[in-house]
Write a protein that binds this DNA or RNA. Structure first.
Lengths: 229, 229
DNA sequence: GCAAAAGTGTTACAATTACACCCATGC
DNA sequence: GCATGGGTGTAATTGTAACACTTTTGC
């Protein structure tokens, strides 16, 4: 095989893995021990294998940082191509958005931790801005798809879901209205169980789950809907 | 430079260039004269240059098929990585969505033509499915952003805009409601001119234009809006 | 005058938000 | 009993769709 270096490029995959931890939307980052950017925090990822697809590659690399079973949703985000994004030389990077349910407590390597996305530490490369893209994608999709299923545990109370949506959206969400919107759209179904209140009292909370553990679009046309025909 | 072929990949860019022609949403395709896929229709594009960004590359390649000035909007769509997507060998492809206003009549090379996206001819590679992704992205954004500006001429009547939205969305759109929705959102501003009716008569139509020739999000939260605070 | 196309007024409908009020439990 | 969190009923608000009607032109 003739090798024309100028027209072939190293390609890496990166994961913006988001989850609500301690009430804040957080990203999974690991701390670099080597140059460049020693000590700075980076998105998990790695290089694309020879006969591998991008989605497969990102899942493979994420598995080294987090139990891959915990990732409830994974979708392609964008591809970065700035020739100077890596000081060592040109590397194309395709980023994916991954979501981990709140409540899951996957074991993490020592160099890896969750960081709230609105207070990221100093990041390596362009990873800070890629994480921001991931957050924007999540926020946009929360209101017109069922993407929230991937941030919530299997079963949950409305208050728990309210806190999750609030953390992801970055503003307060009313439990009352959240419940009704999701029930009307048919994405939420009640289980028959309830959860005992905490020591401070209160009525036992009903437990719900998402009807479907896949991404569904529930509000395709915000305007200009097709007629009844 | 040592060349490790297994970890470097050729990378191409592709453009899903859409425009409403003769009342139908159409994609710009060119007919292949060489193997593979001789005679089939392909998306315009080409390889990524050594120190080039993806967006720059796609603009450069599109310029060979269409007057680049006519492309009013260009955004990254997705990156395809199936190792078998090109029978000659592995090539990664990053697709962009480009929009050309209706009414623009750019000169096209002999091998290039507009094809309605709901009746595409036999396409080369995975280009048919990439074009479909482009159409889906456009449809989704039409109802909550001002992306329509890039499909419409500088100035237009509501009926013309109705036809453009109808073609892009794939269903009838009422001129009455289209006008009101866009006026209320403040994205449409009336000019003071009118257009004479056609020979079949009718009241002269008022001429409008978009307030802003950039992509704006007008309906960020379909639900779970932040409160007035 | 009549047909055709454009545009306006009004009503109807749907989805979401806001808020008052009732419910069930622990202490 | 009463504080606390959970949940329901109902109204208010907003946004969109439907449709009748008026306006302005060509013939």
């Amino acid at each position: 095989m003739r090798c024309v270096a100028e027209t072939r490029y190293p390609h890496e995959v990166l994961g913006v893995v988001l989850s609500v931890r301690d009430g804040r939307l957080s990203a999974l980052l690991w701390r670099r021990a080597e140059k460049p950017f020693v000590g700075r925090w980076a998105l998990p990822g790695g290089i694309l294998g020879a006969d591998e697809r991008l989605g497969t590659a990102v899942a493979r690399h994420l598995a080294r940082k987090v139990d891959i079973q915990e990732i409830a949703h994974l979708e392609q985000l964008e591809t970065r191509s700035d020739p100077k994004r890596d000081p060592r030389g040109r590397v194309l990077a395709t980023a994916y958005l991954g979501l981990v349910p709140a409540g899951a407590e996957p074991d993490l390597p020592d160099d890896t931790a969750w960081h709230p996305v609105d207070a990221l530490p100093r990041t390596a490369f362009d990873h800070g801005s890629i994480a921001e893209s991931g957050r924007a994608r999540l926020r946009a999709k929360l209101s017109y798809t069922t993407i929230g299923y991937a941030l919530a545990p299997d079963t949950f109370t409305i208050s728990q879901l309210r806190d999750i949506y609030g953390a992801a959206l970055g503003h307060e969400v009313s439990a009352t209205n959240l419940q009704r919107v999701l029930l009307r759209r048919g994405v939420l179904v009640p289980t028959n169980s309830t959860v005992a209140p905490t020591r401070s009292g209160g009525r036992p909370a009903a437990v719900y789950r998402f009807r479907d553990r896949n991404l569904l679009v529930t509000n395709e046309f915000a305007a200009f809907r097709p007629g009844p025909a």
